[in-house]
Design a protein around this nucleic acid. Structure first.
Lengths: 358, 358
DNA sequence: CTCCCGTGCTAAATCGAGTTAGCACCTGTG
DNA sequence: CACAGGTGCTAACTCGATTTAGCACGGGAG
């Protein structure tokens, strides 16, 4: 309890050498400083005997590196996503011997500024600034005085701050190809955006998913069967949009821009007497928990929250490597979760295995 | 960017005084050290001009207090509860000028030990060790070398470590009274435990909720209509238990030991052609998200996760106050969320308002 | 025998705050 | 005029590690 902590001086005394010698042994630079094997052995024994653990606060003061990282998000409690983002960051941090400070801004820029300062005051090696949904954000001025990485966000102002984001464009292609490969060619409808993009301006998911979808359709020479932009991506909006879309012509496949829209689409299709996937196939994005709860289970392109968290830490700690003037944007693949909401149309060619390689 | 941080020495130089004087001004001890108002003004101006912020690492080394708290939980990602526990802790920490380290043990004692050490190495002022469900835990030996608080857990070994837990006994009384006040007297059945307690040994919720229920029934002179202990508190188990219970005699009210059991009970009652709350009233515990999703919305006694998180920080920072030999156990009230699953029986006396006071 | 160089270590400075001990100056008193 | 006592400040040490500068010794070359 009250026993004082063992310091390096104690270890040195126990080993009968100077603090300097002990320090060099422990930092593994004994060759460089020509410390004899004998002294090394004595120091290591002293460490074991005394149960010495270096005081990181002190080391941090001297070296300026605290083996500590700040993780600031706009919200940690309300979305279940947050947990996995933090989880990935936590694991990556532990793998590299770092501890994580966390903070929550609740979207308040002033609070954000204070948190960044408070973490810098504590000598963090860098800060991960995370957003709960992918968007452009203004990089706070005080963030850039030390290494920083944006997570799930791209700098809106001209800033060198590296970013880690989901690869939404490729996700759009994946979603479209899933229906194309199942033979839905010209029968694909869009719920959520397109053909002209109209969604909240700071959401990147909408425009990039649409871009990927459009590219994949063009590559396949396919034409959209219809599309309904939605200003908000909630179940009830998806319900209305779907009813409206099928009132003109019934598509054989639907790409919903997120799982909540898909939930609404499920209900609308059921009300219209259409069966999923027999009459209409559905593909979506996010891989919300509910995607595996609904019946039939929803095929969706997953947001890789755990991987995003991990990669943010890795990018932060590897900073200064690929310094080619351009701000780094690391895009994390969004994996397809194939479940039960897509039907392969008769006569469609089976998915070409080689495509998975390219 | 590359500009070096402003130190106290810079401030002192800018103000034309010694570092000592500047330090005393900033720590508010100028009276004590007889610093003139003139010098004080010059120092404060210098702070403003230079944008000085104290280096907490340095302060921490000298004073031993880092204004930093460790929060270690067994899991952060998998349960939605975790977010609110951390959220409460985060808010309380911010209110008191502290930052939070977080760590996740994934139930691994070795990892737990390492995390505790890593945080102590960084000079945390104390550690909150949190469990995701209420239980007894063995307090790690290395935890107690500095202030610590158990959250959602009670020490199983003889330990002075203070605890913050939900008041499960009172919650049991609340649940029982809710049905008693609605006139369900001798018609109350239990799903999950009782009359003899048979549930996983380290779960405190079961025994304490049962104790509260039993006390409230005794106070009211009421007898149990039946009870079904369950080894695991999952929907399918609750379904079976409920079917079995009503096969003997149909109670007018059901207390389920958590919301998942209640979900199963809902399904069983529906299958048996019984309506909630017309035929059977249901009260439960936890206030899971789903409790407000099911129809009729479930009346349940809520686990106060946010408050638990807040209080853990408060207890940690107020340590050394009520030092009366006994280990402190702080019990946080579990509030009743009155929704639509309880029916007041005809002829029952309305709830006495004064009862809420006592 | 002297000089040089490599070997193996140590003394002391350093990081940036907080804290202890004490110095110079002024005023009032006997 | 000597001296006590208060006022207002500063020099120097401290926390515990890292790191720079350099010392003592032995052996080989000239």
């Amino acid at each position: 309890m009250g026993t004082k902590r063992v310091t390096l001086a104690d270890v040195a005394q126990n080993a009968g050498v100077s603090q300097t010698a002990a320090s060099f042994v422990l930092s593994g630079r004994r060759k460089e400083m020509r410390i004899s094997a004998d002294v090394e052995a004595r120091v290591l024994r002293a460490v074991r005997v005394t149960g010495y653990r270096p005081n990181i606060v002190s080391r941090s003061l001297r070296t300026g590196t605290s083996h500590t990282i700040g993780f600031i998000s706009d919200t940690v409690a309300t979305t279940p996503f947050a947990g996995h983002l933090i989880w990935g960051a936590l694991d990556a941090a532990r793998d590299r011997g770092r501890l994580l400070f966390i903070g929550e801004t609740e979207g308040d820029p002033e609070l954000e500024r204070q948190l960044i300062d408070a973490m810098h005051d504590r000598g963090v090696d860098g800060i991960v600034l995370a957003s709960m949904y992918t968007r452009k954000i203004a990089v706070p001025k005080n963030l850039t005085s030390r290494p920083a990485v944006l997570l799930n966000a791209i700098p809106s102002n001209r800033s060198r701050t590296p970013s880690v984001v989901p690869d939404e464009v490729e996700a759009g292609r994946t979603a479209a190809r899933t229906l194309l490969d199942a033979g839905h060619g010209d029968g694909i409808g869009l719920i959520g955006a397109g053909p002209v993009n109209r969604v909240p301006k700071d959401s990147l998911a909408a425009s990039q998913r649409l871009q990927g979808i459009t590219e994949a359709l063009q590559d396949a020479g396919a034409k959209l069967a219809g599309s309904m932009p939605c200003l908000d991506w909630q179940p009830d909006i998806g319900y209305d949009a779907t009813l409206q879309l099928i009132s003109k012509a019934t598509p054989t496949g639907l790409i919903c821009f997120n799982d909540r829209l898909a939930l609404g689409a499920y209900q609308a299709l059921a009300d219209a007497g259409l069966d999923v996937p027999r009459d209409v196939s559905v593909v979506s994005f996010d891989d919300d928990l509910m995607a595996s709860w609904v019946r039939p289970r929803l095929t969706t392109v997953a947001l890789p929250h755990y991987e995003l968290g991990r990669e943010a830490i890795n990018v932060l700690l590897n900073e200064g490597e690929p310094d080619n003037g351009e701000p780094t944007i690391r895009r994390i693949p969004m994996p397809l979760r194939e479940r039960d909401s897509v039907r392969r149309l008769a006569g469609s060619r089976p998915k070409v295995r080689a495509r998975a390689l390219g």
